[in-house]
Design a protein around this nucleic acid. Structure first.
Lengths: 211, 211
DNA sequence: AAACAACTGTAGCGTAATTAACGTATTTCA
DNA sequence: TGAAATACGTTAATTACGCTACAGTTGTTT
């Protein structure tokens, strides 16, 4: 996936209409294949959206940061096609489907917010597809750039394996690219946390279109 | 993309509320980057949804068959992130955004239909992502199987290049796989049209999960 | 009917990326 | 606090796939 992270849509005024839930790090919020009966809004914490590809390998589609919602696709009353997993201890607000209908009746402006949310998810998925047209180096570059755009002050708990799972590459490939970049001084790694020293170089990597 | 084709959702009762449009084969219905002011329902014909990846290469995301809608993502009032291109002469119904709001006010059940439509598009995109986890052979297999599921009686105007553009593979790779399958008697090609003789073999190709 | 464009058939080569394998460091948790 | 589980570093071997190139076919345009 590409834009791992999305901009928030304004759900805050309606939070009191949902039910608050606390989940522990690593626990599953909803699982691919299960039929849920509502969607969630992430208030605090961090949630990872993954999908099981054929071959069992998980693929990270999206990292949800506070202010965003997850599981909206359940509104069509079919099984979830992704799994949501808390990365940190998180606080969520849950909105059941049927209750949401009433909500919309009372607050028609929510319809727009909801539509935007869903469509934004579509954009994220599409970027995930477009990512595959790039070289592996470019894929990681796009990924890192997006991460640092969205996580400015947050801590980013992405391992090499996570980067691999976000792109469909192998950990070894990710490692090699990172190593190279470290040598070139583009990035810095300390305590297994990334820092981009020269983002412009990464951007150049991506921009170099058809020569 | 994977499920090139989606199931129809019931827009028919509302067609008289849109404006009918006729478009010629190969003409563009809406273009990536442009800002439209409504979405379309395909009544007759065939439409191809493509996206321009970095590097200009087009990628086919979806083939829209009659009974389905396209361009729904414009409802968030931002630029289209795909291009829709008529494959055959087609008949569409156009629903402008603002008018659609009134529509929904009058026919609240449309909200559900609309949500289902959008979420279905999400599923298609996700399948496109999942496709990348497979070998090239498996990708083509999935693709062909989907095509023949959805186009039972329709004519399928997919060239080798189209298959390549649907998966991100090169035409040469597609050709090699097809050649191999022809040799094995799995498929038959006549007049540049496909026929799957032994779909089960294709399904096996895909099913062979983690050994 | 000629000219042009788009699609298919085929080969060979190079390489980027996957797989396999293994040791070290660092968290996690019982 | 010690064992187990994860994550990282590194190398070497294998291969799938892309790229290039060109010739033959079918389809479209004028």
């Amino acid at each position: 996936m590409a834009t791992l992270f999305e901009t928030a849509y304004n759900w805050e005024p309606y939070l009191n209409l949902g039910t608050r839930q606390f989940v522990k790090a690593k626990s599953v919020i909803y699982e691919q294949g299960s039929i849920g009966d509502g969607f969630y809004y992430l208030h605090k914490g961090l949630v990872r959206i993954v999908t099981a590809t054929a071959k069992g390998k998980d693929r990270i589609l999206n990292i949800v940061v506070p202010g965003q919602s997850l599981g909206v696709q359940i509104m069509d009353q079919r099984a979830h096609f992704t799994t949501a997993q808390a990365v940190k201890d998180s606080v969520l607000y849950f909105f059941p489907c049927d209750q949401f209908k009433e909500l919309i009746a009372k607050h028609p402006e929510l319809r727009v917010v909801f539509a935007q949310t869903v469509i934004h998810k579509m954009r994220i998925l599409l970027e995930g597809i477009n990512l595959n047209a790039l070289t592996s180096e470019q894929q990681i570059a796009v990924l890192l750039l997006n991460i640092f755009d969205d996580f400015k002050n947050h801590e980013v708990p992405l391992t090499q394996q996570d980067l691999a799972n976000s792109t469909g590459l192998t950990r070894i490939t990710v490692y090699k690219i990172l190593k190279q970049w470290k040598k070139e001084g583009i990035i810095e790694i300390q305590d297994r946390k990334f820092q981009i020293l020269m983002p412009q170089l990464l951007r150049n990597l991506v921009k170099e279109t058809t020569p």
